Simulated assay, not measured.
Amino acid sequence: MASTEIIVCTTCRPPGASRELPAEGLALFEAVQDALLLCGLDTGEHQGLQLRGLACMSGCGRACTVTLQAQGKFTYYFGDLAGDAETAAQVIACAQLHHQSPDGNLARNARPERLRSGILARLPPVGQEAA
C-alpha cells in the first residue's frame, strides 16, 4: 500500500498577519512533526505516513494549508487550519484514514472535525477515467 504524504505549507500566514512573526504554517508543520515523533512514527504507530514541508502551496487566502496524497488515490487539499497541536493531531488522524482507504476517498463525516470544512480541492488519482 502506498504511503500517504502529508504536505504542509510552511509559509502560510492568515490574511493580515505580520511578516515579522513566524509563519503559522511553519508552526503547523512543526506541530505535525512533533506529534508524529511523540506518538511513535518510529514504532510503527504511524507507519505509512510521510511528512514534507513545502514553501507556498498557493492557498494564501485560506491559510494554513495541508495536502494529503498517495499514488493511485484521491488527493485532498485543505485550508483554514490553525497552527496548533490539536490541528496537528487531526491532520495525522485524517492522513491515517487516507492511508487506510483503498482509493483515498475521505467521507466528510469520517474526517476529524477540523478537516470537515475548509476543503479547497479533491483531485482524482492521475490517469483515472472521468465518471
Results as ranks from 00 to 15, higher is better:
G40Y: 08
R13M: 05
L54R: 15
L106G: 01
A131Y: 11
E129M: 14
R19E: 09
V91E: 04
A93F: 08
A110L: 06
P112V: 02
I119W: 12
D103I: 09
P15S: 06
T75D: 00
I92A: 05
G118C: 01
A93N: 08
H46F: 13
D80I: 00
A93S: 13
S58M: 14
M57F: 06
G44K: 03
R108A: 08
Q33H: 15
S3W: 11
Q100Y: 12
A63W: 02
A121D: 03
L106M: 11
Q69T: 15
A63C: 09
Q96W: 07
A110T: 03
L97Q: 15
I7Q: 09
A27F: 08
E129Y: 14
D34Y: 10
P22L: 06
P22W: 09
I119H: 07
Q47V: 03
A35Q: 12
C94D: 07
L68N: 11
R114C: 11
G79F: 07
E20G: 11
G59F: 02
T65S: 03
G59S: 13
C39V: 03
R108E: 15
C64M: 10
S3M: 11
E20D: 08
H46R: 07
A63R: 01
Q100E: 13
G118L: 02
L51Q: 04
A95I: 05
G53P: 07
L49S: 07
G61V: 10
L28P: 10
A2M: 14
L38E: 15
A85W: 09
L115S: 05
L49K: 07
I6F: 08
V91I: 07
L36S: 05
H98V: 00
A2R: 15
I6N: 01
G72M: 02
A31D: 05
L54M: 13
I119V: 15
Q100A: 15
Q128C: 02
A2W: 13
D80Q: 10
R116A: 01
P102L: 11
L115I: 02
M57S: 00
G16Y: 08
E24G: 08
V91Y: 11
L120A: 05
L36H: 04
L21W: 08
R116W: 04
Q71R: 12
A63S: 14
D80E: 12
T11V: 06
A31N: 06
F74L: 13
S18I: 03
L81Q: 12
G48A: 01
G53L: 03
H99E: 14
L54A: 15
I119C: 14
L51R: 06
S101K: 07
G48C: 05
T4V: 04
G79T: 03
G83K: 03
G79V: 01
H46P: 01
M1T: 10
S58A: 15
D42E: 15
S3E: 14
C60Y: 07
A27E: 15
E86N: 10
R19C: 05
T4H: 06
H98L: 00
T11M: 09
P15L: 05
I6W: 12
A95T: 01
C39S: 12
L21Y: 06
A17Q: 14
C60H: 12
L120Y: 14
Q71E: 15
L38K: 14
G127P: 02
A2F: 13
T43N: 06
G53E: 06
Q90I: 00
S18F: 08
A93W: 04
F74R: 09
E129P: 06
T75V: 08
A88I: 00
L68I: 08
R13H: 04
H46S: 06
L81M: 10
